[in-house]
Every structure is written in structure tokens, then in C-alpha cells.
Design a protein around this nucleic acid. Structure first.
Lengths: 194, 194, 194, 194
DNA sequence: TATGAATGAGCATTCATTCAT
DNA sequence: AATGAATGAATGCTCATTCAT
């Protein structure tokens, strides 16, 4: 019998290693060798589990998306401000996620496949936030309207998180929260959400 | 007698060509050969005007930043909504700018130099928007407060423009404006700006 | 108690699988993985029975040679034309043998070992054909002369088979036989063989 | 002005170097590095003139074909025996051509493109030999019949040359000529060619 | 000033081989 | 006996850079 290996676990481990490598050197700067080193295997092992560099990168993208979604697991707890804040780059882990995610966005611009995955990911985010908005508002609101509100909420988060990611030293959590609140509070209070 | 050449004009032409190449193939996919081809010169000519690929890319970044700032040249004309909208990717030209700019952001994540330039650029934007906000509000407002308002305005623009850039077919101008207005109108009307 | 396995049978099965893989992808294109897949085992099993890829290839060569020789098992039946024709690539099986054999010849050019085996194989063929020629001719003929006749017969077969192998669609059996007859009939009829 | 280089001459030089490398190490054993070294350039220079290894190999094939055809430039001089002999591997140069050509044949078995080129090459050879046969025979003979004769002549040459290439030490020129004559003399004398 | 030939380091990728189970 | 995970050397290829003209 051959050595028993959890194939999926290995793939996830390599994908995570790829995220580290990307955070270190960027999407293009990350060499397969770096990914392998971060996963403490050889390049041969990486290509044993993936078809090539592109496949590794896509797995890393998948993993990043999963992490970001998981970060906001309980959609009904806390007020909207807290929930929105859960998406912001407030600690080291989430800052890393934002950096890598931004790197992927930069490439998605010219990569059809990546753009499609990105879009699917946003669809899921919108759905989740919209559901939360429906649940949070006292008076009934249609999903259609909730989705439009979600677009606004997500845009605010992205705008703040984006800037905080590229100017981390100038955008501590307090500043991020303040700007986010400035944008969302008046917009949502009329619906009595906040 | 040597051929007379406008050195700066050539540099700008190459930087513009680089933008085209980046929009076509991405920041990493764009080869010096592609830049040269887009500028209708040879690679030798490119390296004649620039120290290397990095220098070309930095010039392209500079050019992109200049274009984006120029787009909002008269800070006193129009209401805030129109001014903010002037930054959004509403037509082909601005969409291209956003794409290339996003590509640079993706790399700025791991490029100290690029990040520094990015920061300087945002400082200029903030200043400009803050001045506009001071001028637009009836009652006197401090520049400090105006800058905080500007942070919010810029975050809203970035959040919307960012999404519209990666999902262009789903984010026509009307949808972008609607979400932007949703975020900015209530936030600013208490200050009687909009 | 260990699983009982016919060692030699497994080796032959793998050698046959190698022939299939070579016919599919060429001598260089055939990977050990392909050989293993064709034999419905894993690469580990292949290396269990053979010292390495070279050994597998040599076994395949041996097998191909054996098949070609076996094709003309009864040297006394039929006239020379029929016997010669038995070597030609007239059906799918023999065409496959020619293809793989030709692939080995292409490598024999730079492979001492392969060339030695090739030579030994031709010696056997010459002997067999020469014996047949001695038996077929009414008047007594020396083996020395018969061997020279055999050289001619074999050259004719090779020349025709070679071309038919590379242009299979243009060289149906009838054309092959016609050209072979054109070369051998006059040469041999003076010895009353044909 | 850039360094002036005869592009085609460089391509031919590299193709010739490739032939040397192939003769040395085989079609698969020949690395781009070897080709470059034989041409006294770097691998970069090779890929500057060719799209890749395959293109280099195809150019080498072209060159080999050209050399073989050129070897028999004047179709009207000498008797058929001499002309046929001109194709045989009688000296070092022609032996080398046969070796490399045989290597290509070994790969043509699984390479559609190579097989097509091979076929076109044989068509040219057949045409040339057929014309020679028409001219050599006293009584008029149709091109159709001459082509069939050419098939036989070429098969005889291939069969002899093929064997001589793989057993060079046992097949000196005299033996090659003897067997070729044995096959062609009786076949052609009835047409009063020889 | 401008060309484009040439370089060569760096990369992903392939694959025979090894070995723990 | 047989598996298949893992290795790592080998190689084709890309491309920024250099430089003779």
C-alpha cells in the first residue's frame, strides 16, 4: 500500500502556501519554487497536485475567497456596522487577505477566467449582505431593494478597505470604521438599520 | 546634423503606449516588445529613453495618475454628484484608465515605490476634493473636517468604480451613479452640499 | 502468502504495452506513465519488473523483433513472392509493427546497443531467407550465394515496406506487391525460384 | 544602423548545426543547447531565428532533404546504375545524411507534419527518377509506367541504403552497389536502360 | 538617434526514479 | 507484489538588457 495522503488537504496546504508567497512577492513575483518552499515540499510535489502554476493560482484565489466569506459567518449577529467592519482589513490576517485579493483583482483586469470567478464571488457577497439587510430592517423590504442597498454597503467597504490596504500605516481600524460609518449611517438610518 | 527629437514628447508617447500594452496584457503580460510595438518604435528606442522596464512602468503610472487628475480639472463647476461622477468609469476612456490603474494597485501591494506614489496621488486627490467641499458648503467648515468628508467621498467613488471595472457589463453608468448617490446624498445633505 | 504472479508473463505484457505506447506517441513521446497505463498497472509496477525506461524499451524491441520473425514461421510453404509479401505491412497488425520498428531504427542510429540488436536480428532474417532460397532453387546453390540473394530480397522488402509505412494511404497491399514483384521476379527467375 | 545580418544565412547555419547535433545525439537527444553550441551561438540566438525547437528541427529536415536532392543534380548524366548509386551512403557525407534522415523517418511515424513533408519529398524524387527513366529508354515509355519503375528503383535504393546505414562496417560501397545492381539490372535491362 | 541581433539568467514544466507503506 | 507520493535534475522557452553599427 502506498503512503496514504489526504489529497484535498495537500491541495489546500499548497494553496495556502501560494497565498503566503503571493503576499510576499506578488502574483507575478511568486515563483512555483517559492510556493513549494512555503509548503515545505518540492516543485515536483506542487505539479503533482496541480496542473501548473495557473492551477495553483486559481486554487489560491478560491482559498482567499473562501476565507473572506468565512470571516462573516453569522449574518444575524451584531448590527450592520459591526458586520460591515468584519470585512475591513482591521487585523494582520484580514490585511493579508486584502493584499492578496487586491493582487488578484489587478490580474482579473486581463484574465477572463479570474474575472468570472470574481463576479461569482461578489454575487454571493451581495446575496449574504442583502439577506442581512432584510432581516435587520423593521419594515418589510424587497430583496431587490435590499440588493441595491447591499451594493452600496459593499462599495463602501471596498472603498475603505482598498485605501487602507495600500496605506496601512495611515488607516488604523478607528479611521476605517469612522469613514465607513460616515458613509453608511445616514444612508441606512432612514431604514432604521444601523 | 542629428535628427531633432522632442525628448519629453517621445517619453510621453512611450508611456502612453505602455498604458495601451498594459490594458491589453496586464502589468506582467506587457513585454517591452509590446510597448515598443504600440509606440511604433523598437525595443532599443524604448531603452534609449528609459533606464529599463521598471522606469517605463513608472512613467506609465505617472501618466495614468495625471490623466485621472486631469479628468476633474475644474473643481468649482457642477454639484458634488457630477464632480464625483467625473471620476467614475463611465466611458471607454475612463474605463481603460480604471483597468490600468487597478493593475498598478495590484502590484503596489508588493512594490514599495509604487505604493509611495499611490499615496502621494491620493493626497492630491483628497486635497482637491476637500477644497471643493469647503467651497460648496454654506456654513464654514474646517479643512480637517473637509478632508474627512473627502475620504468618504473618495472611498465611495473607489468602491463603485472598482466594482464597475471588474463587472463592466453589469455596471452601466446609471447603476454606478445610483449607488454613488445612495452613499453620498444622505451623508452630505446634512451639510447642504449636494 | 504472496500473490502468485507469472513474472515473465507480466514482463511480456508490459513490453506489449510499451509497443502500443510507442505506436501512439513515438519512442520519445512514450512516457513510462503511458506504458504503465497501457498495461493497466502503475509506474511503480513497471519499474518493479524492469530496471528503468531503457530496459522497458529494449524489451519492447525484443518483442517487436520476435513478432516480425514469427510472422514468417514456415519457411517452406508458399513461393518466394508470398513469403516476401508476408513481411510487408499489408494489414493493421503488420503496419503497427513496421511503425514501431521504424521508430527503433531511427533511434538505433545513435544507440550502439540498439544497433547491435538490430544487426543480430538481420543476421537471423538473412539466414532464414537464404535457407529458403536454397530449398527453392532446383539446381544446387551455395549458402554464400543464397545469402547474397537474401540481401537483395530483404532490401526489396525493406524499401517497399519502408515507403508503405510512411505513406500508408497511398500504398495499399496491391501496390506493395506489384513493386516487390517488379524487383524480385526478374532477379530470381533466372534461378527459377519465383 | 544595426548590425547587418543575412537572416536566411543564419537560419541555414543553425539548421546545419542542428543536423550535426542530431547526428551526434539523435532527434530527441539533441538539445537546443547543443544546436546552439554547434552553431557557435547561444540558445537565445537560436530562438531569435526560430519559433522553438520544433521549428529548428523542421528546418533541419528541410535542409537534409535539400542536400539529398542536390546530390543528384544532373539527371541526364551517367547510366542509371551510377545515378542510383549517387543516392547511396557511400561516403562520410552521404552516410551522415542517411543517419539523420533515418532519425527523421523514425519520428515521422508519429508526426503528421513530418510525414507530409516526407511524402512531398518522395514525390519530387519519384518525378526526377521517372524523368530520367523516360530519357534513358530507347523506346518510348509513358510517365505513368516510368513512375512505377521509379518506385521500384527508389525502393531498391532505400532498402540497400537503409541497411548500410545501420550496419556501416559491414556494408562498404562495393557491397551496396552489388546488391543494388542485383535488384535493378534484370528489372531494367528488359527495357534496355542499364 | 535608433536599430535589432545577441546574450543569458530565470522560469515553468516534464518525467524517470526512488521509496515508504 | 504493488502503489502512488515525492523528488529533483534536465530542458525548452521567455524576455529584459546590452551593444555594435
Amino acid at each position: 500500500m502506498p503512503k496514504m495522503v489526504d489529497h484535498d488537504a495537500q491541495r489546500r496546504a499548497i494553496a495556502s502556501a501560494a497565498i503566503d508567497a503571493i503576499d510576499e512577492a506578488g502574483l507575478d513575483g511568486a515563483r512555483l519554487k517559492d510556493v513549494a518552499a512555503a509548503a515545505q515540499v518540492t516543485t515536483g510535489a506542487v505539479t503533482h497536485y496541480f496542473d501548473g502554476k495557473d492551477a495553483v493560482l486559481m486554487a489560491a484565489h478560491e482559498e482567499i475567497m473562501r476565507r473572506i466569506l468565512d470571516r462573516q459567518s453569522d449574518p444575524l449577529r451584531g448590527d450592520l456596522g459591526e458586520i460591515a467592519a468584519a470585512f475591513l482589513p482591521l487585523d494582520d490576517a484580514s490585511r493579508r487577505e486584502w493584499r492578496v485579493w487586491l493582487a488578484f483583482c489587478g490580474r482579473a483586469v486581463v484574465n477572463e477566467d479570474l474575472r468570472a470567478r470574481h463576479k461569482a464571488y461578489y454575487r454571493a457577497i451581495v446575496e449574504r449582505v442583502a439577506e442581512r439587510l432584510v432581516a435587520a430592517q423593521r419594515h418589510r423590504v424587497s430583496m431587490a431593494r435590499a440588493r441595491r442597498q447591499a451594493d452600496a454597503v459593499i462599495a463602501a467597504i471596498d472603498g475603505v478597505g482598498f485605501r487602507a490596504t495600500l496605506e496601512p500605516e495611515d488607516w488604523p481600524p478607528a479611521r476605517q470604521r469612522a469613514v465607513l460609518r460616515m458613509l453608511l449611517e445616514p444612508a441606512l438610518e432612514e431604514d432604521e438599520i444601523v
